[in-house]
């Protein structure tokens, strides 16, 4: 099986506003940090998928800098993988662990596309 380099696949997903993850066809383990092997069992029988972007905040902090305060969070996606992200649309202090969120392409991402998260109001 030939694969494109993992970081290229991750970048492709990102440009579409998606988080890519790998699924191990041998043991079922998943990881959002794309690699050439499964970090659980070592298998190279992997498939790459795009997450639907729904998840919950696993942990969160407000980083205070001279430019202002902004959120940095870890998001547990419904597909069972964790990613770093930022929750936009609410004051960073209001981002709480357990909050349901939805990821999408950052409209202000510029030439470095990234996924950002907004609070899912209807849960």
């Amino acid at each position: 099986m030939t694969h494109r380099p993992p970081q290229e696949q991750a970048a492709t997903a990102r440009a579409m506003g998606h988080v890519a993850y790998q699924h191990c066809e041998t043991c079922g383990a998943r990881a959002a940090f794309l690699r050439v092997l499964c970090p659980v069992c070592g298998s190279t029988d992997l498939t790459v998928h795009h997450s639907a972007g729904r998840g919950v905040v696993y942990s969160t902090t407000t980083l205070r800098t001279r430019e202002g305060a902004r959120d940095v969070s870890l998001i547990d996606l419904d597909e069972g993988v964790r990613v770093m992200g930022t929750v936009a649309g609410v004051p960073p202090e209001d981002v709480a662990i357990g909050l349901p969120v939805q990821g999408a392409l950052d409209p202000e991402g510029g030439d470095e596309p990234r996924v950002i998260f907004t609070v899912e109001r209807d849960g």
């Binding site: 970081q7 991750a10 970048a11 990102r14 959002a32 940090f33 696993y58 942990s59 969160t60 902090t61 980083l63 800098t65 940095v72 969070s73 870890l74 990613v83 770093m84 992200g85 930022t86 662990i97 357990g98 470095e112 990234r114």
Partner: peptide, 25 residues
Amino acid sequence: FPDEQLYAPRYPITQYALAAARHMH
């Protein structure tokens, strides 16, 4: 680490803050 660098955590305090917040929760 590209997957994290896009969100510009301030290394290493942001990472420890995330751990502290989770422990508190």
